[in-house]
Amino acid sequence: MDENLKSELRKQGIVATTLQELYNWGRKNSLWPLNFGLACCAIEMIAASMARYDMARFGAEVFRPSPRQADLMIVAGTVTKKMAPQVVRLYNQMAEPKYVISMGACAISGGPFKQGYNVLKGIDRYIPVDVYIPGCPPRPEALIDALMTLQKMIDRQPLTGPDRPRHLQADAPSEFIVPEFGAHDLDPSQNPEVWQAPLVNISLAGTDDAGND
């Protein structure tokens, strides 16, 4: 339908829409986050939900303490290897449609603890992430920006065709492997269906030519 005609009708008090628009409008404006935090990023998440930044303006004020009632998982903070199975299990217990925001350097890649032995090097090794927010920790504005980015992403999704959201594809996975505690590391150390380590080219490293071309 023509956009100009639509806004003209709107002025006359007639709302014209499509089922897809209505469906996506409902999805994007009722993103209920799961009420859990892992480290200092959680403090910024709490600040974003309180009166000063007021995430409620975007329909995301109802922090749910149960994964069964939540739509959005905000991974706010350092995911230690000891905590990773529980995070993945919480994600598996959420009902579709579900989304993930990876908040802060630690949740993205391990951050300052990347070279350590006890921190998971990014939650995207086990679950699919929709929006990444860099920062250590990101400010509440950044979290609101991530939420708005997610809303725009939801708004663009068609309900039919190959680009339709995951919960409308019958054969798309909704649950992912929960890693187990191994003798030296988590087992498996990553879910290859979700994430694979990029293999960087190191052929020039260590020679005099490194960095000169």
Partner: peptide, 18 residues
């Protein structure tokens, strides 16, 4: 455990591990 993504220009011990 070997679960590190290496930067493009590692050196010394890290180069050896990469």
């Amino acid at each position: 455990p070997d679960d590190f993504e290496y930067e493009p220009t590692p050196h010394d011990e890290v180069l050896e591990r990469a």
